[in-house]
Design a protein around this nucleic acid. Structure first.
Lengths: 197, 197
DNA sequence: CTACAATTCCTAGGCATATTAGGCAACTCA
DNA sequence: TGAGTTGCCTAATATGCCTAGGAATTGTAG
């Protein structure tokens, strides 16, 4: 009996690759077993169950994603940083749809709390916005707006919700200009302050 | 043998309700069968298969959703309309998470092309933006920005991605003000035009 | 090097779900 | 009331998740 040489890491990475291929929700333990030439049951020595595997993929994906974003942001500030951040964000989602989807699976609060990567992405977003001169609670509001926009765009693009494929890139850039403008004029868009000013 | 009185419509509506309860991806034919007190196989007289059922739920949800948005928009214009639109959008997502998720399942292009509701939502968005004086290609760009932001916010909220539950409402309103501001100043956020003007 | 321990993988089996084929019973309507 | 349609059934197959318990392989300590 020749062993397949399975490892938790190896299984998780293969699962992430398969997610990119066939969609995160279609990753299956039996398929993973086939890929490694072992029986289903053998995988349970390496992951607890399907949910555990998914969580691990989510954490792996978040790690890789955060690294990409951090790299893109290095040494940039202001609009440059915003464009770089957005580019890294969307490129990851396009290149790795399965990993991207994994990143947004509903995680146990405990697992999520232990994830450096998820926290890091939040921090990177915050630091990006600090450059726009935002402070709490505007900061949280703006972080949410950015995440929503990016996530919404990436998700809609992924499911093919946008009609003309040619325009997608242009619309994205236009959205980024709009976001930059919004962030630069954050205070003026707040009626409670603009009324006074 | 007393008949259960199944109908395609009845099955689809029950599936939509179940989606709201347990999540769209957890809707199962066997569970539906149990709910109606029939055997699994009996459902195949009313829907082709699971995929078919899901598509039908998606179309039903889109219908209901479009109706809500249309009702909210009636007689409003400008920022009022934006707020109403956004409110109806998000309320639907919060009240009917399963139906909402269904609306964003990946549909066969043919099915999607035949869906009045999906088209109607697009039209409603467009008409909303026409009031801001936008024309193509700005219109398409802005429609995509709006959809992305709304969808992103609703999705992230649904999976509990936002930390403090108390602030979610406030952040949402702040996002809407920001969007309104962006739309009102759409041209100025475009570098290719702002440079000239 | 060898014996014990831990680890990897297997067989066997149970349960849930999706789906097809073919049949009988219950409705419908001429 | 009788023919045809439809609604629901039984039976059977396939796939997937998961557990229990056993055998082979590898690691380790004497």
């Amino acid at each position: 009996m020749v062993r397949a040489g399975l490892t938790t890491d190896r299984v998780v990475e293969a699962a992430a690759d398969m997610a990119d291929d066939v969609g995160f929700e279609n990753v299956t333990l039996s398929a993973m077993a086939r890929r490694f030439g072992v029986k289903d049951a053998s995988l349970y020595s390496h992951v607890k169950n399907l949910k555990d595997l998914r969580e691990r993929v989510a954490l792996l994906a978040a790690d890789e994603w955060a690294a990409r974003i951090a790299a893109a942001l290095a040494g940039r500030a202001g609009k440059d940083a915003l464009i770089a951040f957005a580019g890294a964000y969307r490129t990851f989602a396009v290149d790795h749809p399965g990993r991207y989807a994994a990143t947004f699976m509903q995680l146990d609060p405990a697992v999520l709390a232990g994830s450096t990567a998820h926290r890091r992405i939040l921090e990177l977003t915050s630091s990006l916005l600090l450059a726009y001169g935002l402070a709490e609670p505007d900061l949280t509001d703006a972080v949410r707006l950015l995440r929503s926009t990016f996530h919404g765009y990436a998700s809609l693009e992924a499911i093919g919700a946008f009609g003309h494929p040619r325009d997608i890139e242009a619309s994205w850039e236009r959205a980024l200009h709009a976001l930059h403008f919004t962030l630069e004029n954050w205070a003026s868009s707040d009626p409670s302050r603009a009324a006074r000013g």
